[in-house]
Nucleic acid binder design. Sequence first.
DNA 1: AACTACACGTGAGGC
DNA 2: TGCCTCACGTGTAGT
Lengths: 240, 240
Amino acid sequence: MENIDEMNQKNYWDSIHQIEDYSWNELQGSFTSYYDSSSPDPDGNQSSPELDGTQSASASKNIVSERNRRKKLNDRLFALRAVVPNISKMDKASIIKDAIDYIQLLHDQERSIQAELIELESRKLEPMNLDPCPTRMNRSDPRVYPIEILELNLSYVEDKTVLVSLKCSKKRDTIVRLCEVFESLKLNIVTANISSSSSEKLFNTLFIQLGEEEDMDNLKTKIETAIKLFNHPDQTAFTM
Amino acid sequence: MENIDEMNQKNYWDSIHQIEDYSWNELQGSFTSYYDSSSPDPDGNQSSPELDGTQSASASKNIVSERNRRKKLNDRLFALRAVVPNISKMDKASIIKDAIDYIQLLHDQERSIQAELIELESRKLEPMNLDPCPTRMNRSDPRVYPIEILELNLSYVEDKTVLVSLKCSKKRDTIVRLCEVFESLKLNIVTANISSSSSEKLFNTLFIQLGEEEDMDNLKTKIETAIKLFNHPDQTAFTM
DNA sequence: AACTACACGTGAGGC
DNA sequence: TGCCTCACGTGTAGT
């Protein structure tokens, strides 16, 4: 029974040794040596016999529990010290004070940086007044710029080879989304041409080799459906 | 007797839990102006008869000093709790733990915000402007198929108009990634052509209108750097 | 009644 | 020498 306590004590002090390497060096160093001699209280050399077993047991439980509590608190304090740079002193109180100051400093920094960021952002969209093409806001802008189909024509150039001509309005990421659409369709694309000579429209021309059981109308429906699905990604259950 | 003092000291931390009768404002006050404390009155309740002034005096000094130390530490801890939002529990250990988590959260926020800021700044005034967040919302597998450049040639076709000829190996999502690269570069693309006539290679041809202060070599470096960055999205914007 | 969390006084060591 | 900081064991509330 006391062996368990002793084991706990040993582990505790070993961990204190580890901590003591980190900081709190002199105090805990001498302290450790001091208590290495002092701690074997429950061992045999102490002449106190177990007269009242119940109370001493509960007392030792309490002692070791309190010891663990102190250890946990010190560990947390050291961890706090670890995430705070520029710690002046190793005091417990100084560690907490430095942490407070650092958090307030981070608060100020965050505020000023965010002010600067929104100022930059607002300044950015000022000179180029591209109203139909709004700039992307902060990360994870939920807005989606859908592909707006202006024309979609398919025509055979020979057997099983289709020329797809797609005209759509030019918005942000339209080219990327268009590529995603056509890659998702797993088509046999011979050539693809994307032209942006006009600043408002976007022309996409593809030569596509059809499979055995496909035809032109089927392909057109698939393209339209894929574009709709990419425009509305909420309906995720689609398989092609 | 000592019971009064003891009750005050006990109500100190308990007041955090329950109701602030004695605590909040006074604690903050004692935090700002350090130890012009309220409680330490060693004279009145010191009921022990001081006949031997030397030892008992020093002992009481020590006691009240230690009391002030503990009070200061608790005040600091309380102040730390005050600057940390979303404190779950009122434990001492939990307060420190929440503070640690909050500081790490602020670290992450600061890092991402600063990255965003320098990205915005670089987009604004640097010739190299990368859009690090293209619409990569695909639920596809996390494997990345890098763009493998086989050839990259640039040639002037007239003043400030460059023909970019890029040959790369054809892997999954290469077309999409290529489009992302060129969209991120915010170039003035006149036409773009992607051809996949061969099943192994992929030819990309672009006509690009250069800006005033750009030249061909600069553009080539930008393209190569952008492709490298898109191939290795781990190292964000710092290694260019 | 067992367990947690705390404040207290005390002794020890460093400046 | 005093002053400072610390860990310890203990008693005591609340759960």
